[in-house]
Amino acid sequence: MVPYAELESFFSGLVATAQSRGITCAITSGMACVHFGVAATTKDCDVLCDAAKSDDFRALIAGTLLRGLSPNYRGHLSPPLDARWMRGGWTSHFTWRTKPEETCLDIFGIAPRGSSPWDRQLHGIYACPNVVAEMKRTNREKDWPFATALGGQMLEEGDLEGWLHLHDADILRRFMKHPAPTERLMGLRPLLGLAPFTDTLRVKRLLLAERAFWSELDELRIRIYQKHLRPYVSAVRRASSGRRDLEVAESHALRLECALEHLPFHPLRDYGLEQMVAEAKANVGVTVGADVVEWLPAAEYNFDGL
């Protein structure tokens, strides 16, 4: 078993090396949460990488051994690490076949739900708390407390953007001792207009609605990508003749061919970003209530880079 400390050092070193070579990239998600003081029990790593530097990053990954093991693309399902698809929000997946469990690396070119350029807000080798918190607004219950914890930290450090990440009624009320949310933030997140958040039941209901909205949006996003992934995975399987030991370069060439045929560059944009938001809001109108829709976030801003 590769100890976690060694894995953390490995991924930190990979990103630090990449940065030293002019590849803008940053660790996000679980390992970033640990760095910022919200412990996550994850051993895999998520990295944001400037799509324009995807070829350089891929070459670096291909040459980076972990305990003498070379990396591979993970299974048949990974899109190629290529700028054309990264810019459309596709994530690429790599693995080192460590035992007893493989070591995985996921690479994003676009921060899901990002409202601002992630590459201009780095904290050393890490994405900033704001980006990490936005990425935690998923369809998984377990992710939401991380966003709230990061938001609270941001406010305690004087960053008012933290108001966008508090998803707990009690925490919202208690943070009124900090500077109140600005008009701009209220525009992005209408629920903040309920400050000082003393109408607890109403706040709780709107928090449920917000969470349902982001969850619907994430589910829709995943469905859109997966619809295209299915034929792609079959094509990669056929093209690789079932081999899972292809080196990155060979696997990459094969995936490029399959991706050109089966993976649109910008599936979310093709679907319609406004359409996605409208659908997610309509679903919340049904599941929670039509009256909450006007309180949902202006999520049109959360597709930065797409």
């Binding site: 078993m1 412990a39 029990t41 997946h93 990508y225």
Partner: peptide, 29 residues
């Protein structure tokens, strides 16, 4: 100390057979 404690917690879980590798989904939530 936080990173050391997280490392101990994760490694202890893994030594007891807990699988922490994320599922292969193709799309990361």
């Amino acid at each position: 100390r936080r990173k050391q404690a997280v490392a101990e917690m994760i490694d202890h879980a893994r030594s007891k057979g807990v699988k922490l590798t994320r599922p292969a989904l193709g799309v990361t939530p």
